[in-house]
Design a protein around this nucleic acid. Structure first.
Length: 351
DNA sequence: CCTGCGGTGCGCCTTACGTCA
DNA sequence: AGTGACGTAAGGCGCACCGCA
């Protein structure tokens, strides 16, 4: 079994209306199983994009939702719906360039003139959408991007992209901040894309579907990397906590042993009075002798532990042995599973 | 019903490029 | 201006799944 810790993805909205990352931790399952489930999920998503949310909620390994300020107010454009971003100055359904003006134009068939107003300058923080790829030496790639693929199926344009770039090496395109932010918002909605969504997103950003696909793949990789780092940190903290607890219990045990040697008052009890519940490893009074020891329990110094243990066993509430007898009734070796308090939940303890 | 094959998408690893200190 | 570190877009490969003949 593969033990994996995964991040929760609960995204809360702070007072300011900004989505914030909530790191909840859980235990994941083996990658093989997960992959299969994801794969099936993806296949189903092709049919029904509306199942994304449900899938994300039920996913054993939810993706990390980074605390990206939702300045764009992006909502994933459904099959029929329109993004609210349009109302905030960024109409995702309004094609950033001529895409909207060329309804019949495939995203991969956009010519060099398809992106005349694109601004993908990495330093163009104040750049506006539509983007201008015509400058900053990015035009070449922008054109290649616009010309890339074309015709054929998604796969051909996706895998064999940049064929027409020939030997001009691969020019690296830096996505603009707007594009990145838009993709980020999309990723927050869905960490994977179905073909329809990918094409739609590519159109909206005036990118090739392959670029969108690659961005999501890399984004997932980054998420996983971050998750690994967080998991590592969590495990480290848990290790420290358990080490400290172990140290404390060792000390406590030594003290109790010393006390036992000095004043073994509970040793007056018959050996069969206390026993360990085999199922829950908790101290209980021996049913065979409980009735006989009960009267003595009223007066014996050991009455309190015995009675407490008895009620504890009867009670459905979780309990821990709180008496010396309970401690000594437990196996004395380590780990002290019977007396050791359960580690606190990760969400409340470690992160 | 089973099987082989092609198509597709993803994860993983790597490479190459752009940016910055 | 040169350089190394870092981030990231993109290429390549293998795997799993699906549809189809």
């Amino acid at each position: 079994m593969e033990l994996g810790l995964s991040l929760g993805d609960a995204v809360t909205v702070a007072d300011g209306g900004r989505p914030e990352l909530v790191l909840g931790l859980g235990v994941g399952v083996g990658a093989g199983v997960r992959r299969g489930e994801e794969e099936r999920g993806r296949r189903e998503d092709v049919v029904g994009a509306g199942r994304w949310a449900a899938m994300a909620a039920a996913s054993p390994e939810p993706s990390v939702r980074l605390s990206l300020v939702s300045s764009l107010g992006f909502h994933w454009p459904s099959e029929t719906g329109r993004s609210e971003a349009a109302a905030r100055g960024f109409d995702v359904n309004r094609a950033p360039s001529v895409a909207a003006g060329a309804p019949g134009m495939e995203d991969d068939e956009e010519g060099p003139g398809a992106a005349p107003a694109l601004s993908s300058s990495p330093n163009d923080s104040g750049g506006s959408f539509p983007l201008d790829l015509s400058g900053h030496g990015l035009r070449g790639h922008a054109e290649a991007a616009a010309q890339g693929g074309g015709g054929g199926g998604e796969r051909s344009s996706s895998r064999a992209s940049d064929d027409d770039e020939g030997a001009s090496a691969r020019k690296k395109l830096r996505l603009s901040k707007e594009q990145s932010a838009f993709l980020e918002e999309s990723f927050k909605e869905h960490s994977t894309l179905n073909p329809k969504q990918k094409v739609a997103l590519a159109k909206q950003l005036n990118l090739r579907p392959r670029q969108v696909e690659v961005w999501f793949q890399n984004r997932r990789a980054r998420t996983k990397l971050k998750q690994t780092e967080v998991d590592c940190e969590y495990l480290k903290r848990c290790c420290e906590t358990l080490t400290e607890e172990n140290r404390r219990l060792h000390k406590e045990l030594a003290e109790l042993r010393a006390l036992k040697t000095a004043r073994p008052f509970y040793m007056h009890l018959p050996a069969t009075t206390l026993s360990m519940c085999p199922s829950c490893e908790r101290v209980a009074s021996n049913p065979a002798t409980a009735s006989t020891s009960a009267p003595a329990a009223a007066t014996s110094p050991a009455a309190a532990p015995t009675a407490a243990a008895r009620t504890a066993v009867a009670s459905p509430e979780p309990h821990r042995p709180s008496s010396f007898a309970a401690l000594f009734a437990a196996p004395l070796g380590f780990p002290l599973t019977a007396a050791q308090p359960r580690p606190p939940p990760p969400a409340s303890n470690c992160l």
